[in-house]
Structures are given as C-alpha cells and as structure tokens.
C-alpha cells in the first residue's frame, strides 16, 4: 500500500522561492523518475514536490554500462542524463502527476545555453510548478557541470532561463568548485529564486582485480550518506551567502538528516540515493520531521530554517 505521511498539527508548509510546498520534502532529480515507479510504495502527491529526472530538448542516450558502483556508504553513478526528451515528459509524466494532484518541479538540462531555454519554453504551458536548472551534472561532456563551474557561464544561463519564465527558478549547483558561495551569488544576481545543492561529487572507483575502472565512463558522481558532511557544509555556507532560499540535499535518509539540513539553512530538502535502499524513504523522512517537531515542541518547521546555534 502506498504510504502517506502521518497526520500532525505541526505546520509543515514551506515556500521555496515561490514554490509552495505542503511539506519540506522533495526528491533528488534522477533518483525517483517522475514518481511512477515509486507509486506502489508512496503517495507521490503527499510529497512537498516531485522533482523529475533531468530532461533535455530531444532526449539523450546516456553513457555506457556499468553506470553505477557501490562505494563505502555511498555510490557512484554515470547515467549521463539519459532521457526521452521534453515532449515525452509533457505527454506522459506531467499529466500523470497533475492527475494525482502532485506538485511537479522539472529538472532542466541542456548541452547549450539555448537548449536550456528551449526546454523551459516547451514547458511553459504544461502543469509545472517550478524549474530546477541543472548546471551541475558531472556525467555529460557539454552543458551540465562545465556550465556551473564559472561565474560568467552561470550568469549567462541563469539570466537566459530567467528571461524565459516567470515561474520559480531554482538553480542546482555543483560541489565540484573552489568556492561555492561565489557561484551561488552569481546565480542569485542573475535572477534565481532559489538554489539547490549539492549535485554529486566527482569520484572514481577502481577494481584492483581486473585493473579496470568500475564505471564505463571511468569517473562519476558520488552520492549517498558518505557525502552528507560535505553537503551540510556547503548548504550552510551558501545559506549564509545569499538571501534566496536553499533546497538542501546529499545523503539525506532520515528525518534527523533533514532537520540537520534545515538547521544549517535549508528551506526544503531532497531525498535522493536513499530511495534505492528504502522505497518509502521520502515519507519516512517527512514522518521523521514530524516526530522531531512534536518531540521538541516546534509548531512550524519554518522555525527551524537556519536555526543552527553557533
């Protein structure tokens, strides 16, 4: 039976740069499809938002296999943003989410500045509550992380996307930079309504027995519980550097993990890799947030945002 969060008198609703969320929990793009595959396990409409898999204009093939490797308390992936293109999302997944009454945030990718804009333009009439602009994927050669590492390209792509839509625009940042606050400020200045972080850390795994890399692409993105301390640190730094809200992610698997991110400054959180081990992780995290609030007498989750004492 699909699980829903339990009832509570705690106010869970948050606002992520114009995106109204009934609770502060969404999913990490690419770990949840558009929710269909998890709908036997959780009521996807009960999530704060469903963030869909990265979508490009005409679809991409993705990388060769093996695309994943398990590492200590984490994993590497090099999916390479395989997706069937924005038309498929519009015809199949978005109507399905809309029928359920789910809140959809679309993760947007592109190989070029113009492709990001074209994807957003293609979606302007579709039932989309917000865009998450992915300028941080480490697994593609053009676009993705290459765009998210330098201030001029961040300003340009965010500015062009901003001009293309009035909807909430969340910009997803890569941790693979020297100073993430510099990139965060550039995105804010170019018109982002919110920032999400972290995307995966660039990593690598080697099979000593075969003397080969464990991923066909050699390098890939590192995620899961192992990256949580890095993610928390970056969320804290960014939340202190900008005045727009932050969507925190990286290794979140429990309500306590989510609370830690909110205390560090996140307005909302995303559950990614944890869905793989636990298909009800999203609802478990919401329930865990409720438990915490009830236990500590927190009447409104918004009280927790940035409430770290230090």
């Amino acid at each position: 039976m699909a699980r829903k969060p339990r009832a509570t008198s705690v106010n869970l609703a948050v606002n992520l740069g114009g995106l109204a969320m009934k609770n502060p929990v969404t999913v990490g793009s690419g770990t949840f499809g558009a929710g269909m595959e998890y709908s036997d396990f959780v009521d996807v409409a009960s999530l704060g938002a469903v963030t869909t898999k990265g979508v490009s204009l005409n679809g991409w093939e993705g990388n060769a296999t093996p695309r994943i490797a398990e590492t200590a308390s984490g994993m590497l992936n090099s999916i390479g943003l395989q997706n069937p293109g924005v038309a498929h999302l519009k015809e199949v997944e978005l109507p399905w989410l809309a029928d359920l009454g789910a809140t959809a945030m679309v993760n947007v990718s592109g190989h070029s500045f113009d492709e990001y804009v074209a994807v957003i333009e293609a979606l302007e009439e579709a039932p989309v509550a917000a865009y998450e602009v992915n300028i941080s994927c480490p697994n593609v050669d053009a676009g993705g992380m290459t765009m998210g590492c330098h201030v001029p390209s961040v300003e340009k792509v965010v500015g062009m996307c901003r001009a293309a839509t009035k909807r909430p625009l969340i910009v997803k940042l890569t941790p693979n930079v020297t100073d993430i606050t510099e990139i965060a400020r550039a995105a804010e200045a170019a018109g982002a309504d919110g920032l999400s972080l972290i995307n995966t850390l660039l990593g690598m795994a080697v099979d000593a027995r075969t003397r080969r890399p464990k991923l066909a692409r050699v390098v890939g993105g590192y995620s899961g519980p192992a990256v949580k301390p890095v993610a928390l640190r970056m969320v804290w730094q960014v939340a202190n550097a900008v005045s727009i809200p932050v969507l925190g992610m990286g290794g979140i698997a429990s309500g306590t993990d989510a609370i830690e991110f909110m205390l560090a400054g996140a307005t909302a959180v995303a559950v990614g890799t944890a869905n793989f081990a636990n298909p009800t992780a999203t609802v478990d995290v919401i329930d865990g947030i409720i438990d915490y609030c009830e236990q500590y007498g927190v009447k409104d989750v918004n009280e927790l945002i940035g409430a770290l004492e230090c």
């Binding site: 690419g30 770990t31 949840f32 499809g33 595959e37 998890y38 898999k53 993705g62 296999t65 093996p66 695309r67 994943i68 490797a69 994993m75 992936n77 999916i79 395989q82 890799t273 869905n275 793989f276 298909p279």
Partner: peptide
C-alpha cells in the same frame, strides 16, 4: 548493476 531495481534510476 542495479540501484533502484524498480525502473527509476536508469542504472
């Protein structure tokens, strides 16, 4: 190699 095992992650 499988991560989600339910069709969502494209591993």
């Amino acid at each position: 190699r499988m991560a989600c095992g339910v069709g969502a992650c494209l591993s």
